[in-house]
Design a protein around this nucleic acid. Structure first.
Lengths: 203, 203
DNA sequence: CTAGATATAGGACGATTGTCCTAATGCAGG
DNA sequence: CCTGCATTAGGACAATCGTCCTATATCTAG
C-alpha cells in the first residue's frame, strides 16, 4: 500500500519533470539522462515505471489534458458570464507571458514538433487543442452564437497561437498585450453585433 | 574555375536538401546521414563544404532569406496596389496549404524549435519574420496607415501563424480557407475605416 | 524474523550522433 | 606525362541515444 504510493510519487515526479523539460526544450531534445538528473534518480530505473520514452510522452500529454480540463472546469464554475470566461482564456497569454516569450505555447509547440516527427501521439496532442476548442465553443454557444460558435472558438484559438509564436520569436511583451486587447475588443464587437438584427453597421 | 562551379553545385544541393529536411522533420531530428542520402553523397564529404551542422543551418536560413526577399521583391514589382500585395501574402496560406497542413509554417516552426534548443541562430530565424514584417509595414504605410503600419503588419503576421498552427494540428483545409477570407475582410475593413474621418461607424 | 515483492542503482548493449582523418579519385596547368 | 589542388568516399572516433539486464536495497506480509 505505502510502497504503491511511493511508486506513484516517483512516477508522478518523473512525469512532472518530463512535462517541464518537454515544454522548455522539446520532446526529441530531452533525453532520459536529462529527466533522470532533474528528478534525481538513476537512468535505468525508468523502465520500472515506463516501458518506453513514448510512454512518458503519453503520460505527459494525459497530465496536461487533466490539468487543462481541471482549469477549464474551474473557470466554468467561478466565472458567471461566458464572455468573462472567454476573456479568462485570452488572458492566459498575459498570465503565462514570460514562459510564452521564452518557450512558446506548450500546446502549439508540442503539436508542431510531433507533426514533424510523424509521431503517433500527434493526435493526442491535438486533443489538447480540442479541449480548448470545445470549451470555447460552449461559451460562444451560451452567448447565443449557435452554429457560428465553433468557428469563433477556432478563431480566437488561432489568434492566441499566432500571438504566442510572434511574442516568442521577437520576445515582445508589448505586442502580446496589444494583441490581447485587440482580441478582447473583437469579442466585444462580436457580442455587440449579436444583438443587432440588421447589418446596417457593416454596410 | 569549372571545379569551383562543381563544388558550389554540390554545396547548393546540400543546402537545398537540408532546407527541405529541416522543414519537414525539424533541424534537430535531421541527421547528416539523412542529408547525405538525400543528396547522394558520402557522409564524411560534408566537411569540405561545411565546418559544422550549425553552418548548414546558417546557410539554409540565408537561402530562405534570399528566396523570401526575392519573392517579396517580385510582389512589389508586379502588384500595383499595396492592398493587393498584402492579399498575396495572406494567400500564401492557401498556395502552400498542403505543406502547411503537413509540416506547418517553415518560418514559425523553425523559430519555435530554435528557441527551445537555445540555439544561437534563433535571431537569424527571427530575421525571416522581420523580412515579412518590414515588407508588410511598407505596404500598410503606402496605404496611409502611418504609425499604425507596424502593428497592422504584426497583426496579420500573427494571424497567419495561428492559422498555420491550427491547420496543421487539425489538418483542416476548410478552417484555413475560412480564416483567409476573414483576414481579407479584416483588411478591407481597415482600409474602409481609413477613409472615414470620424469614428461614427464604431460608435 | 523470514520470505517475497517492489524499487532502485549502475552499468552493458547496439545503434546513431556530429566530427574528423586518411586514402583514393578527378581534373587543371606546366 | 607529371605535379598539385580540389573533391570525394569510407571509415574511425568519442559521445550520447533509448533500451535492457542484474545485483542491491527497501519494505510489506505472513
Amino acid at each position: 500500500m505505502i510502497d504503491r504510493e511511493m511508486a506513484l510519487e516517483t512516477r508522478d515526479r518523473i512525469i512532472e519533470a518530463a512535462d517541464l523539460l518537454f515544454y522548455q526544450h522539446g520532446f526529441e531534445a530531452t533525453s532520459f539522462a536529462d529527466i533522470a538528473s532533474a528528478v534525481g534518480i538513476s537512468r535505468g530505473n525508468f523502465y520500472h515505471h515506463f516501458k518506453t520514452k513514448d510512454d512518458i510522452l503519453d503520460s505527459v500529454i494525459n497530465r496536461r489534458l487533466a490539468n487543462t480540463e481541471q482549469m477549464l472546469d474551474r473557470w466554468e464554475v467561478t466565472g458567471s458570464d461566458p464572455a468573462e470566461r472567454i476573456r479568462s482564456f485570452i488572458h492566459i497569454l498575459i498570465v503565462n507571458g514570460e514562459k510564452i516569450r521564452k518557450f512558446g505555447c506548450p500546446v502549439g509547440t508540442l503539436s508542431s514538433e510531433l507533426a514533424k516527427l510523424n509521431h503517433a501521439a500527434k493526435s493526442d496532442a491535438a486533443a489538447l487543442f480540442t479541449l480548448f476548442r470545445s470549451w470555447l465553443r460552449r461559451q460562444f454557444d451560451r452567448l447565443g452564437f449557435g452554429d457560428r460558435s465553433d468557428e469563433l472558438a477556432m478563431h480566437i484559438l488561432g489568434r492566441s497561437q499566432g500571438v504566442a509564436i510572434l511574442a516568442n520569436a521577437f520576445d515582445d511583451d508589448g505586442f502580446l498585450h496589444h494583441e490581447v486587447d485587440l482580441m478582447c475588443a473583437w469579442l466585444d464587437d462580436q457580442i455587440a453585433g449579436l444583438t443587432t438584427t440588421n447589418n446596417s453597421i457593416r454596410e
